[in-house]
Design a protein around this nucleic acid. Structure first.
Lengths: 88, 88
DNA sequence: ACTCTAATTAGACAAAGAACTAATTAGAAA
DNA sequence: TTTCTAATTAGTTCTTTGTCTAATTAGAGT
């Protein structure tokens, strides 16, 4: 599942932009949403795919959910493509 | 156009496997097809997406089409993700 | 307990993706 | 020019994805 989920997640521009924003620093779902012209539910589904790929982690802070980038997973995936080897 | 097509192309396991095979060396469409359990037309569509992303180039040799990996485009795309910057 | 805010999940639907078979193009060889 | 082989394009069908609105969950404050 791992690598497939990662590349599936990376395939959408919105999700790549989310990752780029999180590169700057952790951010709540709401803050992230302000950078897009999409409804929150739609964004929420994108977040779910990023979580599924383990590209981001989430942490509750009061009523907000703070997302942060899981740098190592991203770098691992890219290293895999560089060597162009499939799967685990 | 570039980056979206590249990530779209990378999002399917079959296409990543094609790239991995081409990493070894140039190969005809037919030779590539032998490594998969899919019909040639189906593979042909996958090849088209890789061409569209400029991840591979193709060259006719008699009646065969020889595909080869466009290494620089692939590496550029990965470098872009590493720095997580969008677009050109 | 009620209410407010933050976010997700559920349900619906149009658009895109991936697979197949059948038809077409392109080159080589008889 | 007919025929054979290699590969692609066309057309169809089924599944998945992306988006929306409406409903739900979770925490904080009153």
């Amino acid at each position: 599942m791992g690598i497939n989920a990662v590349f599936e997640a990376l395939s959408h521009p919105v999700r790549r932009k989310v990752l780029a924003l999180l590169k700057i620093g952790p951010m709540s779902a709401g803050e992230l949403a302000e950078h897009f012209d999409l409804t929150r539910p739609t964004l929420s589904v994108h977040f779910a795919k990023l979580r599924e790929a383990d590209l981001v982690a989430v942490e509750r802070q009061g009523t907000s959910l703070i997302y942060h980038l899981n740098t190592s997973v991203l770098e691992q995936a890219l290293a895999d493509v560089l060597s162009l080897r499939e799967e685990k």
